[in-house]
Design a binder for these strands. Structure first.
Lengths: 342, 342
DNA sequence: TTTTAGCACTCTCCTTTTAAGACTGCTAAT
DNA sequence: ATTAGCAGTCTTAAAAGGAGAGTGCTAAAA
């Protein structure tokens, strides 16, 4: 863990870089922010931070910029309080005044996000999720391995082999099977996923099996997912400094036109049911290495049905972006529930 | 009109530029195409062509490139026979194998166009066109001016003042009104537009009034049009040489994200009911000055219901593009009629 | 009268040079 | 543990130079 001074230096470095888009030098840090340490001291600290992977030096005689790890640390531990501009709140609330069709509303939300932030707004179509669980079955392979077999109402069967750290008796398997089936039979896959993935669950189940089932469920949900997305404001992203290079733009546009890629990103957030953020390489799409993605879900009544998000450069104001996306998600859910809730 | 030699030189200049993307020099023309005239002669001819506005010289010591006027002349008078690659035909015919939903089919068509040509594919949603004519009325203002008043089934009233070159008697107005109303009452606006805009029509009607009615109809149709469009393959356009400049890309993307603009371009083609082509400034959208747009219509049975098109750089192979778009339009119409025709 | 050879001139584009400026890392002093 | 000072590195912008491509014009040839 970083000591206090390193944290301060990292935090200010990230903030300054987000603002200025210029590699941050020790001199700037000392002079602009009156930290009370000399440039030389700060230089030493920054060299340490670079060694530990939080900062990067574009070239020998340049200042430093945050690495993905640096941004991640910043987002996880150094963020100031969320700050919402009054106008952001106003814009989010304006959703309440739209009563166009379902599709039109979602499209409007994507446009709203992009207009207000000058980043890209994305919306995943509502997931139908009618598929329910038919049965969970186990086959004991001995040698502490077991096959999990899941059958769904749509007739799809999927299995997965799992290794156990502690062996289980015939009896225990039987109990677990009965318990799981009685509890989850005919329930929606998404609901089961959600219940199982909660930290606390009053069910005696080995962690490996639990994770195995979760994997299978995710797999099933993923292949049957609704892939439709709205992507709005692609042209807006070009005004940012990181996209002045034509080749970057090309590869970026390529990715953004692949609905499958965007929908799969949003789908992950949908399954996790919460505000999520991916930074640079965490997205696992090389073309989006300069971007961060913030997503959250929207729901109809009690049911999470889809997700929305924002794609922008890593160099974004996270406090504001996170708060804004979260707010939009909530407001959209309210509006949908109000319009269509039972 | 240009003499034979100028035509040949213009034609080859355009063709070579489309192929090479380099300003075409007199030397290239003489040497590569063995025209039998010396570079000096060709130089003189090219200077003439420039003076008449068919060619442009990027700078003093460069070859020449076609102006919009040059492209237009080429497309109107110098085109070789349409050439369809076998693969283009195959791709167009593949439409027949899609039987996904209506919307999916249209989206697929836009993608097909862009995939096959590496340009942008666009599709205008089907126009509902339920609006019919209620009444056409005239008010004689004397002094050879008359107000045309058109009322529609949706209750919209629109009028237009028209000047006449030959005055009409009270009697003639009455006859015309009766004739027009008996003939067009309760007919769809689009149908009336189409009938009236035909060259030959067995109806005694002053040209000014006819054009006035057409204007009003176009206006009515335009404001009530379905604005939805699909735009596919925006990223593909970036591989072309004319879009290597980041600022051009920005403005281009801006326009392409404006559905209203694209739909209005397509709507014009829809009203004209045929294969149309606009080159550069003819499009009247500064951001598309480097582009040409080829559009055609698609129909369900006898009824034209929408239009499709392609947006690419002016420097495109017109023979192929025109043929391809036309073919796609026809094939799509056949497929739609087969799927949904009554 | 039309065509062509020849040449001076122009403009682009690429490479090289030069210089200024921004920071760092390291050393030695505090 | 901190800091001043300085040599060294790298970027960036501007300037200079030179090759190459192509034209317009003139005067000669057809």
């Amino acid at each position: 863990m970083l000591d206090e001074r390193k944290k301060i230096i990292l935090k200010i470095t990230v903030k300054d870089y987000i603002e200025s888009a210029q590699p941050v030098s020790s001199r700037i840090l000392a002079k602009k922010y009156l930290l009370g340490w000399s440039p030389a001291t700060i230089r030493n600290e920054m060299a340490d931070l670079e060694e530990e992977g939080y900062l990067i030096q574009p070239h020998t005689s340049a200042g430093r910029i945050p690495s993905d790890r640096g941004y991640r640390f910043y987002v996880d531990f150094l963020l100031d309080n969320y700050e919402l501009y009054d106008e952001d709140i106003e814009v989010a609330n304006s959703i309440i005044f739209y009563s166009i069709d379902w599709e039109g509303l979602l499209r409007k939300v994507a446009e709203l996000i992009s207009e207000r932030t000058a980043f890209i707004g994305v919306v995943l179509f509502p997931q139908l999720d009618k598929t329910t669980l038919k049965k969970i079955e186990f086959i004991d392979l001995k040698e502490d391995a077991v096959v999990i077999i899941v059958t769904t109402s749509t007739g799809v069967v999927k299995e997965k082999i799992v290794r156990l750290s502690n062996s289980m008796s015939e009896e225990e398997f039987k109990d677990l099977r009965i318990e799981l089936n009685s509890r989850f039979e005919n329930r929606k896959l998404q609901e089961i996923y959600w219940t199982l993935s909660k930290e606390k669950i009053d069910l005696k189940i080995p962690i490996e099996i639990k994770n195995g089932i979760l994997d299978v469920l995710q797999d099933l949900l993923y292949t049957e997912r609704e892939e439709g997305v709205f992507v709005a404001g692609v042209s807006k992203i070009l005004q940012h400094l990181e996209f002045q290079n034509i080749n970057k733009v090309k590869t970026l546009l390529n990715v953004l036109e692949e609905e499958k890629i965007i929908s799969s990103l949003l789908f992950t957030s949908y399954l996790r049911k919460g505000l999520t953020i991916l930074i640079g390489e965490e997205i696992s799409i090389p073309e989006l290495n300069d971007c961060s993605i913030i997503t959250t879900v929207y729901s109809l009544g009690e049911n999470t049905i889809g997700s929305i998000g924002m794609i922008g450069p890593k160099r974004m104001k996270y406090e504001r972006s996170l708060a804004f996306v979260e707010l939009i998600g909530k407001t959209l859910s309210e509006r949908l529930t109000q319009l269509l809730g039972d």
